[in-house]
C-alpha cells in the first residue's frame, strides 16, 4: 500500500510537471525544469512562474481538499454518490462568499473564508436534516434531492442579490464558475492553513470511521464515540470544501469521482482510502485543468466546467451500474 501511495504521488508529480508544460504556449520539459529552479525572466520562465505554477499549486491544494471532503462525506452518509458539490455544501459556501463580498464589502480571502464556512455549515445542516428524516430505505436519493433543492434555493437567492446590482453580477458570473487560474499564490497561501488542519483532522478520523462503517452499535462497542466522530467528520468536510470553494469557486464532481477511483486500489479501508482520495483528487483537478486548456481551439474551458463535463457522465454511470441504491 505504501508503495502504491508513492506511485500515486509520483503520477501526481508527473501530471504536475505536465501542467507546467501544456497550454496556449507549450514549454518543453528541459526548459521548464531549468526555469523552475532558476527564474531568469525568459519567456518560458515568465509563463511557468507567473501563469502555470500558481494554478498548478492551487489545483493540487483544491484537489486534495475536494477529494478528501468527498471521501469523508461518502463515509459519513454511507452514500456512494455523496459529493460536496451535489449535496449543496459548495453552494452554501459560495453563497456565504457572495454575502460577504456584496453585503459586507469583504474583499480578502482571510475575511470571506469565514462566511464560506458559515454558509457551508448552514446549508449542510439543512440538507442533512431534510434528507435524513423519514424511512431509511430511500435515504441516498433523498439526501441527493435535498442537496439539489437547497442548492437551487441558494442559487436563486444569490441571483436575487446580484440582479439588483449589475456590477456585482458581472463579478459573480465569473466567480461562480470555479477556476484555479489565479494571478499569484497569495490566495493559495491563505488557503493552506485551513487545508493542513482539514487534512490532519481527516487522516486522524480514518480508524474511527472504519469502525463506524460496521454500524453505530458495533462501532460504539469497539470504543468509538459515535456522535463525536460524526461531528468531527462534518467539521473536516466544512474546513476542506468551504475553504476550497472560497479559494477557487465551486467545483463539483471531484469529491464524487476521486474516492471511487481510489477505492478500486484500496478497497474500503478508510485509513488508506482517505490519503489516496486526496492524491487522486489532486490528479483529477490537474488533469481537468490541463484538458480545459487544450480542448478549445482558442481560449480555455475553466476547470469546473471540465469536471462537470467529465464528472456528470461518471455520476450517471455509477447510478446505472448499481442494481439498487445501497
Amino acid at each position: 500500500m505504501v508503495f502504491l501511495l508513492l506511485v500515486a504521488v509520483g503520477v501526481l508529480g508527473i501530471v504536475g510537471v505536465g501542467s507546467l508544460l501544456v497550454g496556449a504556449q507549450p514549454v518543453n520539459v528541459g526548459e521548464a525544469l531549468r526555469v523552475v529552479f532558476a527564474d531568469d525572466r525568459s519567456d518560458a520562465a515568465v509563463i511557468v512562474h507567473d501563469l502555470r505554477m500558481p494554478r498548478t499549486v492551487l489545483g493540487i491544494c483544491v484537489g486534495v481538499a475536494l477529494g478528501l471532503a468527498g471521501a469523508l462525506m461518502q463515509s459519513l452518509t454511507r452514500n456512494s454518490i455523496a459529493d460536496p458539490g451535489i449535496l449543496g455544501v459548495n453552494a452554501g459556501a459560495a453563497f456565504g462568499v457572495l454575502v460577504a463580498v456584496v453585503g459586507f464589502g469583504v474583499g480578502q480571502f482571510s475575511g470571506y473564508v469565514w462566511f464560506a464556512f458559515l454558509g457551508a455549515a448552514l446549508s449542510t445542516a439543512l440538507v442533512y436534516l431534510i434528507g435524513t428524516v423519514g424511512p431509511p430505505t430511500t435515504a441516498p436519493v433523498r439526501l441527493v434531492l435535498a442537496g439539489t433543492a437547497v442548492g437551487a434555493a441558494l442559487v436563486a437567492c444569490a441571483e436575487g442579490i446580484v440582479f439588483l446590482d449589475p456590477k456585482a453580477f458581472d463579478e459573480y458570473r465569473f466567480w461562480i464558475v470555479g477556476d484555479v487560474a489565479k494571478p499569484d499564490l497569495s490566495v493559495t497561501g491563505q488557503f493552506l492553513p485551513f487545508l493542513v488542519a482539514g487534512v490532519v483532522l481527516a487522516l486522524l478520523l480514518g480508524p474511527p470511521l472504519n469502525a463506524l462503517a460496521l454500524g453505530d452499535d458495533l462501532g460504539s462497542a469497539l470504543g468509538v464515540r459515535v456522535a463525536r466522530t460524526r461531528i468531527l467528520t462534518g467539521i473536516a468536510v466544512l474546513l476542506l470544501s468551504g475553504a476550497a470553494t472560497a479559494a477557487a469557486g465551486p467545483i463539483a464532481f471531484v469529491g464524487l469521482a476521486a474516492p471511487h477511483l481510489a477505492r478500486t486500489v484500496t478497497g474500503t479501508d478508510q485509513r488508506w482510502l482517505l490519503p489516496f482520495s486526496a492524491v487522486v483528487g489532486a490528479i483529477v483537478v490537474l488533469l481537468a485543468d490541463i484538458l480545459g486548456r487544450v480542448v478549445l481551439p482558442s481560449g480555455e474551458l475553466r476547470v469546473s466546467v471540465m469536471t462537470a463535463i467529465v464528472g456528470a457522465p461518471f455520476f450517471v454511470f455509477l447510478v446505472r451500474r448499481k442494481r439498487a441504491v445501497a
Binding site: 463539483a252 475553466r302 469546473s304 462537470a308 447510478v319
Partner: peptide
C-alpha cells in the same frame, strides 16, 4: 431522479460557461 440530477449539474456548468 439521479440521472436527472447528473444531467442537470452538467447543464448548469454549460449554462454558466
Amino acid at each position: 431522479v439521479l440521472a436527472g440530477i447528473g444531467i442537470a449539474a452538467l447543464l448548469a456548468a454549460v449554462n454558466r460557461y
